[in-house]
């Protein structure tokens, strides 16, 4: 998954602010109380095993990112060359890497960088794209045209290519502090990731804007800010939430790819991308495949969990599939 922009393809067509009016007609017949869109979705999701698998995985990885000490008592930075390339067994269940570091400990501690980067980029793009998209969609006119063309420019550059150029221009030195290093990667990806959300939010706002309840609010004299925050955004937010969750997985992959290419996180930060990069030298794959397999497995599972979660939520919110 090298380009999260792909997701827009199937996701954009999906939950574009469907049914701001919950399907009361259906509910009345069964005599239950009318449920909101999200309450409805929750009932559907609850019954799907994929939802629980994704939820459990996400919780595990979040805990791993916050409290890695819970999973391993070892210090991931403590490496002993005498253990170099030892296969899994005994004390180290994932074996040792070329530098003699414990692969299990490094894999556990690697979760933090990936998850922070993924979550922060998803939040950042959702905020930036969401705000600009709402603005462009609601105001319309030349503001919309200018913002849309501006977004087109960033949209025209594939995420990975753009991020490579940015990361290349602002290289991290080994002395850079952890937050700065993370921020650079997040900023590089967000710069090329936001137009995706912008387009989605803009079209959702355009769909919600002509609704009667918006006209009614305007006729009652509500000011634009109130109309946008309490009528338009809540009804247009769903597709952005879904796509952001799916994209989160994509951002983790892109970060790992950048680190793999040597322009993302530096070696001072423990990350899955760097671990896989170091394990990918041909001689090493042949001799110590476990160096590649374990970080790769964790990386894939994390990405899988977020993509799966996004898709389950999308399906649950899609009235066409009910």
């Amino acid at each position: 998954m090298s380009d999260p922009n792909n997701d827009a393809l199937d996701a954009a067509a999906v939950v574009t602010a469907e049914s701001p009016i919950p399907d009361t007609a259906v509910v009345e017949a069964s005599g239950e109380k009318a449920r909101s869109l999200w309450a409805d979705a929750w009932v559907i999701m609850r019954g799907r095993p994929l939802f629980w698998v994704a939820a459990v995985l996400i919780v595990i990885f979040l805990v791993m990112a916050i409290f890695p000490q819970l999973f391993t008592a070892k210090d991931p930075t403590l490496c002993d060359l005498t253990y170099s390339r030892q296969p899994p067994g005994g004390d180290a269940i994932f074996g040792y890497d070329a530098q003699g570091c414990d692969v299990f400990a490094r894999t556990i501690y690697g979760a933090r960088a990936s998850i922070i980067v993924g979550v922060a980029t998803a939040l950042f793009t959702a905020l930036l794209g969401g705000l600009l998209g709402t603005f462009a969609g609601y105001v319309g006119g030349w503001v919309d045209t200018v913002l849309s063309r501006f977004a087109d420019i960033f949209f025209a550059i594939p995420l990975l290519l753009g991020a490579i150029v940015v990361m290349y221009s602002i290289p991290s030195s080994p002395e850079s502090p952890f937050p700065l290093v993370i921020f650079k990667v997040v900023a590089a990806m967000a710069l090329f990731g936001w137009p995706n959300i912008f387009r989605l939010m803009r079209s959702a706002v355009l769909q919600v804007k002509p609704n009667e309840y918006v006209l009614a609010a305007r006729a009652l004299g509500a000011n634009p800010l109130r109309i946008v925050t309490s009528h338009i955004v809540p009804n247009a937010l769903t597709p952005v939430l879904v796509v952001s969750t799916i994209d989160l997985g994509g951002y983790i992959v892109t970060e790992a790819t950048l680190s793999f290419l040597g322009v993302g996180l530096p070696d001072t930060v423990i990350s899955w991308g760097r671990a896989i990069s170091r394990a990918s030298d041909l001689g090493l794959i042949r001799q110590v495949p476990h160096m590649l397999l374990f970080p790769a497995l964790f990386l894939c599972l994390t990405v899988l969990a977020f993509i799966m979660m996004g898709e389950v939520v999308r399906d649950a919110l899609d009235p066409k599939l009910r």
Partner: peptide, 22 residues
Amino acid sequence: TLILISMPVFVMGGLAQLVFGI
């Protein structure tokens, strides 16, 4: 397809080399 989507190209490449090549 879900598994393929969540697997970065470089992981897939490494695995393919390991399994089909080596």
